[in-house]
């Protein structure tokens, strides 16, 4: 299930005074089972790019090829594409509409024309995936808390069992606890399934902790593409386009510049803890030896 994007251009409202080039010659390849973070400033084109992945937007020039098929199709083939690539929009809880959580999660599988038994299996499985307890399924989605609503909406996409799961800012507007919960759920979904996950975010902390590969967008172009370490090692360039490296990395850079003998390529709190403990251990040993 490889995603291949070739020379992709997309223009908003072509021919009008409001014309704007949203994507400019994008070339990307994302392989099966990758966990990719897509970061960029507001208006950098990241949301436009992900809408190309399931054919909601069609390229003005260039190609988007999912698993060998172009997204520029219609009818049944387009339906299969939508089923292959699950897209969770920003604030997905705003799209809930059914009377019960169960029915809402079942909406996607129903559109795929699955049997009742299969739908039931998928709904319960998707609910478990996002950590929704069984008794919530019969409640109205509008009685739930913000974080739970969002889980229901994400479950609504997971229940279609896509091969690629794209999440556009899944933690926007949640409190720290809700954010933490959603992110760890996404991590466990990635760990258990054979899904490719693409996480769109502007939180450096979130992506640094979760993803393996990072794609940075700026003004409709791919600005950087590589492992988390590779991308964040270009801190100065990232700052130039209005982005930043994770805060813990800023702290470590500062510590190194003040003469502490530690490795500054640290991007998560977990790694920072290990690095600091090892450092203090070393210092203690040094004192004992002296």
């Amino acid at each position: 299930m490889a995603i291949k994007i070739e020379n992709l251009d997309y223009i908003y409202m072509p021919g009008s005074p409001f014309e704007k080039k949203a994507l400019d010659n994008i070339n990307l390849q994302i392989d099966d089972g990758e966990f990719v973070g897509l970061i960029g400033h507001t208006g950098s084109g990241k949301s436009t790019l992900v809408q190309h992945l399931n054919g909601l937007l069609k390229p003005h020039s260039g190609n988007v090829i999912i698993n060998g098929y172009s997204t520029d199709t219609k009818g049944e083939e387009l339906k299969r594409l939508r089923c292959d690539v699950g897209l969770v929009f920003q604030y997905p809880e705003h799209q809930l509409f059914e009377e019960t959580v169960y029915k809402d999660i079942a909406f996607g599988p129903q559109n795929l024309g699955l049997s009742k038994e299969e739908i039931d299996v998928r709904v319960r499985d998707a609910a478990r995936c996002v950590g929704l307890p069984e008794d919530v399924l019969d409640k109205s989605p509008f009685d739930l808390s913000g974080g739970q609503k969002r889980r229901v909406a994400i479950a609504g996409v997971i229940s279609m069992r896509p091969n690629v799961l794209v999440l556009d800012e899944p933690t926007a507007g949640l409190d720290p606890a809700g954010r933490e919960a959603i992110l760890s759920q996404i991590k466990s979904i990635y760990d258990e399934g054979n899904m490719t996950v693409i996480l769109v975010s502007h939180s450096m902390e979130d992506v640094a902790r979760l993803v393996k590969r990072l794609i940075v967008m700026n003004e409709g172009k791919v600005f950087a593409d590589g492992t988390v370490e590779e991308v964040f090692s270009r801190g100065a360039e990232l700052r130039n386009i209005g982005l930043n490296v994770p805060q813990v990395n800023i702290l470590f850079d500062e510590l190194v510049s003040r003469g502490m003998d530690i490795n500054s390529n640290v991007y998560t709190v977990e790694a920072a803890k290990r690095e600091l403990l090892a450092y203090f251990e070393k210092v203690k040993e040094g004192k004992e030896n002296a």
């Binding site: 339906k79 939508r82 929009f89 997905p92 996607g108 996409v157």
Partner: peptide, 9 residues
């Protein structure tokens, strides 16, 4: 768009 992404037509 969001409902289309869930297979609605």
């Amino acid at each position: 768009k969001a409902q289309k992404a869930r297979g609605a037509s």
